[in-house]
């Protein structure tokens, strides 16, 4: 039971981290139709910028400044890169963002090298807030959970209660019509791209000390973020939240379970063979759920695409 509670907390942490990435990506995708392959690269930039700033000014300045920097980089990419490529259609846009992801990774390696960065959480949060059983819950993770919840509430407020939020919502479906009403849609695109990438930057700043700051961090998280927005439904903030939490808990519980596929085989009345190397089922006999945990989100995505192509909350086809 203790383990279940602790897994719920860990899954919440991981899910909310995913949400900070997927919320920006899903907004950008539904508004501009651009599947931004470089989204997770902005997450990585956030971590590296924050690390660099924290060397001189401490963690908190990093948390404040790094996402702003990432957002500015994102806005510039939209203004001078994507917007020019846009007129040639979606495939060049995809190739552009894909190339950008590779470029950012190489730039990071160029300036910071291949090694892990010793990016640390602030001293003030380096203690175990409470323990369940023997398992400690670090204060930093709790801080992260509250920060991301605050960001979600802020986003929701802006999107549903403010005029700019209404314009964004309208432009998600009919950008041309919104522009014909006199709203500067190109500027809004740039802003959404900037805010979306800044959110990814926040995620990087917060996750860097926990999950590690290294040149492969974008790649490790990148694909799962796409899975999240497909499951949640493209363009839906709620969908992104629900799917992120779902995946957070799914992977956490899968990884911490000790379920073995041998149990299923035995329930069919099969005997574990004496010599596994001769058995054509040897892989199944030795397979455990934690081993395949990380592919469960992809299986879920395929199922969603088959049975509910709009995703859980989406209104349009993938």
């Amino acid at each position: 039971m203790d383990l279940v509670i602790i897994n719920l907390i860990d899954g919440l942490f991981y899910g909310l981290l995913l949400f900070m990435l997927s919320s920006g990506l899903t907004l950008i995708f539904s508004m501009m139709g651009v599947l931004n392959f470089a989204h997770a690269s902005f997450y990585m930039l956030g971590a590296y910028f924050a690390y660099q700033i924290s060397m001189y000014l401490g963690f908190w300045m990093g948390l404040l400044v790094a996402p702003l920097l990432v957002g500015v980089v994102g806005a510039l990419v939209e203004r001078y890169g994507l917007r020019r490529v846009h007129q040639y259609g979606h495939v060049p846009e995809l190739i552009f963002t894909f190339g950008l992801a590779l470029l950012i990774e190489e730039v990071v390696k160029f300036f910071w090298g291949n090694n892990l960065m010793a990016y640390q959480e602030p001293e003030i949060l380096k203690f175990a807030l409470f323990s369940i059983g023997n398992n400690a819950v670090p204060a930093y993770k709790v801080f992260m959970i509250f920060t991301s919840v605050a960001i979600f509430i802020g986003l929701l407020y802006i999107l549903t209660r403010t005029r700019i939020g209404m314009i964004i919502q309208a432009a998600l479906s009919y950008p041309r019509t919104v522009e014909a009403l006199g709203h500067n849609v190109p500027l809004i695109f740039m802003g959404v791209f900037g805010v979306g990438t800044a959110l990814a930057g926040v995620a990087g700043v917060l996750a860097g000390p926990v999950l590690g700051t290294f040149p492969g961090m974008a790649f490790v998280l990148g694909s799962i973020v796409f899975v999240t927005i497909v499951i949640g439904g493209l363009g839906s903030l709620w969908g992104a939240l629900v799917a992120s939490l779902l995946l957070g808990w799914l992977t956490t519980f899968a990884a911490s379970s000790s379920f073995s596929f041998a149990t299923i085989l035995e329930s069919f009345g099969m005997q574990r063979p004496e010599s596994l190397s001769d058995s054509y089922l040897r892989d199944l006999w030795t397979l455990t759920l934690p081993q395949i945990g990380p592919i469960l989100p992809y299986i879920l995505m395929v199922l969603i695409l088959v049975f509910r192509p709009h995703g859980l909350f989406g209104k349009r086809d993938v």
Binding site: M166, Q169, A170, S173, Y174, R176, T177, V178, A180, K315
Partner: peptide
Amino acid sequence: PENRDIFPGL
């Protein structure tokens, strides 16, 4: 415009 483009969700 011809297609009425009512903003959904609003």
